[in-house]
Amino acid sequence: MYLQERVVENRLIGYPDQGIYKLVLYGQVAKSAKPGQFVHIQVSDTYDPLLRRPLSIAGIDQDREEVTIYYRVAGKGTDLLTRISVNEQVSALGPLGTGFTIPHTGELLLIAGGIGVFPLYSLIQVLSTAKVSVKLLWGGENQEFLESADFNYLKYLGVDYEVSTLDGSLGYQGLVTDLLEKELKTSKTPTGKEIKSARLLRAAACGPRGMLKAVTAICLKNDIPVEVSLEERMACGIGACLGCVCTVRGKDGNLKRKRVCKEGPVFDGEEVAWDAEV
């Protein structure tokens, strides 16, 4: 949908040099938004920058008709976004793309790298935690980053989590993929017997491509189906321009392209042709 959404909140959260903002939009996006989908926002009134900016939906409040987005200032477009004031209207296309599968039973393991945690927030939010047990593994640069990316909100959501930082300032020192390996080991043999039935365990991940590739390899090795949310440079956001494709391997073994904005951004980790350079 092509919409004008009203800005309810747009402010820096956490440490200023982390440059992470929380943006709340009031309008129609909330009505049909699903975890893993995104909105394509016009950040400039001029031709600089020319294109819209894709941002994930991190929170959905259907009653208040609000969606929450978190963004990190990465360049000109996101910088312009910080200057939009409360009560201003922004032009948004959305909700766009295909979101995460929402399990109704079993266990869901979430793996986030950096700001990849944002779309996972909305997934946690909509899950019925009474029926699905959720654990989030989240890796970031350091404590300042994790706190600035609304660590408090994660605690408020009340799910099981473990974090890692590169410098060890919070949680485990190392990579989130180390946490994942550990998690899968411990979950199989805490007191000798398997507490997690591999058949009911699923995973979903978002983060840098290298991390997602590693996460997929670890999950598949353990027979755990995994969904990954990918990022790519986008123009139209609705599947028309073929700018943002991802290479996948079809069931017939042949390489194919899928559009990150349309068939994605969430893909089955197993279908992604991680090493294809065509």
Partner: peptide, 10 residues
């Protein structure tokens, strides 16, 4: 299949 990504630059 077209070209590999990145396919776009502003």
């Amino acid at each position: 299949l077209g070209n590999p990504v990145p396919r776009l630059a502003e």
